[in-house]
């Protein structure tokens, strides 16, 4: 595994997103004997995307457990272990495979506390590498986070930086509820500053990545990186972009969105999941139902995934989810619109 990199100029330790997650897992396991990692190829192989790396060597096969290919069984095993005093972290190798585990996550993990009248809790974490851009086609590239954001009882996170990937993971492991973390496969190698100590980022709190007065772009995960690149170009055109990184879809931090939209009067929501019936619709409706609606100077715009499975051909694949240029174009269009 690549060692940590110290940037010369800043003197701040830089880790990749994958390394940050691994460091968080290791710290959680060092601090709490109840924490264990399990999933397909997380041990000897080091994880399909190299996230678990050397954790097997460090913690042994009782705490870093290679499993059969049994997603439904694994999700249920996480429920059972969580119910009886453990803090399981399950890796679903590709987030697409969570379709095989829906029953245990949606019917069991999410509902047990409620169904039992508040007497039980299910403190489990499921890590799900998701998203497109790797040429893996329709069954290995989806963005299914909105499905789970529809389920009361679950928490759904989408970190965009190495810093948040570690801080949100540690918060998720502490959380007494089932938490799903959608990690973007294209982000695993991206680097950023990561504090060495074990720290937590609050679940359900968005962050403003960039301040601007003209337009608000709301997104999460890799979409905030693409929005940031677009915002640089927009700045050259005299357009001030405010970027809100949701980080958490459930619970969602509506207050931070509302505060920004009240200032800019323009809202563009960008997400990789299929646009129809997606996250953008929910956020748009929340704005429309609130008194912030009156502050809008242009209609709300959504950029989401195409109404299509993710295709194999690279140009088709790019065309199926919002890219930097799409965000740029959408922002420009929005700047020229006026609400009548």
């Amino acid at each position: 595994m690549p060692a940590e990199v110290i940037t010369q100029e800043a003197g701040v330790r830089q880790l990749s997103y994958a390394e940050a997650i691994r460091e968080g897992l290791g710290q959680a396991m060092e601090a709490d004997p109840r924490v264990f990692l399990f999933g397909e190829d997380v041990g000897v192989y080091g994880g399909a995307f190299g996230v678990s790396g050397d954790l097997l060597r460090r913690f042994g096969p009782e705490r870093v457990i290679d499993t059969p290919i049994s997603e439904l069984g694994l999700a249920g095993a996480a429920v059972g272990a969580a119910l009886t005093g453990m803090r399981p972290v399950l890796e679903i190798q590709f987030s697409d495979f969570v379709t095989l585990a829906m029953e245990q996550i949606v019917n069991q993990a999410a509902k047990i506390r409620f169904m039992f009248g508040g007497k039980a809790s299910v403190p489990m974490v499921v890590r799900l590498p998701g998203g497109s851009g790797t040429g893996a086609a329709a069954q290995h590239s989806q963005s299914l986070e909105a499905w789970f954001a529809h389920v009361p009882g679950l928490k759904v996170l989408q970190p965009s930086t190495p810093h948040d990937a570690k801080g949100l993971l540690l918060a998720a492991i502490d959380d007494p509820n089932p938490v799903l973390i959608f990690e973007h496969k294209l982000l695993y190698k991206t680097k950023g500053p990561v504090p060495a100590e074990a720290y937590r980022e609050p679940i359900g709190k968005a962050v403003v990545r960039r301040s601007g007065r003209d337009i608000t772009i709301v997104g999460a995960s890799i979409m905030t990186l693409r929005a940031a690149a677009a915002a640089e170009k927009l700045a050259g055109e005299g357009i001030g972009t405010e970027i809100i990184d949701l980080r958490s879809l459930r619970p969602i931090d509506f207050a931070t969105i509302a505060q920004s939209v009240r200032k800019t009067g323009r809202l563009l929501i960008v997400y990789e999941g299929v646009k129809t019936m997606g996250i953008g619709a929910e956020i748009a409706a929340m704005i429309a139902e609130s008194d912030v609606f009156g502050a809008l100077v242009a209609p709300i715009a959504r950029l989401g995934g195409a109404d299509s499975p993710i295709p194999y051909n690279p140009s088709l694949e790019k065309a199926s989810v919002p890219q930097e240029d799409d965000i740029l174009a959408a922002a420009r269009r929005l700047m020229h619109k006026r609400k009548r």
Binding site: L72, G73, L74, A75, G76, A77, A78, V79, G80, A81, A82, L83, T84, G85, M86, P88, E103, Q104, N107, Q108, I112, M115, F116, K119, A120
Partner: peptide
Amino acid sequence: ADLTTGNLGANGIVAGGLPIAVGVGMS
């Protein structure tokens, strides 16, 4: 469910309890 007697709950889903039992066993 009656956690005080070790009863981790009935289940409305056919075979819903079996994977949970695996996790309880691991625990």
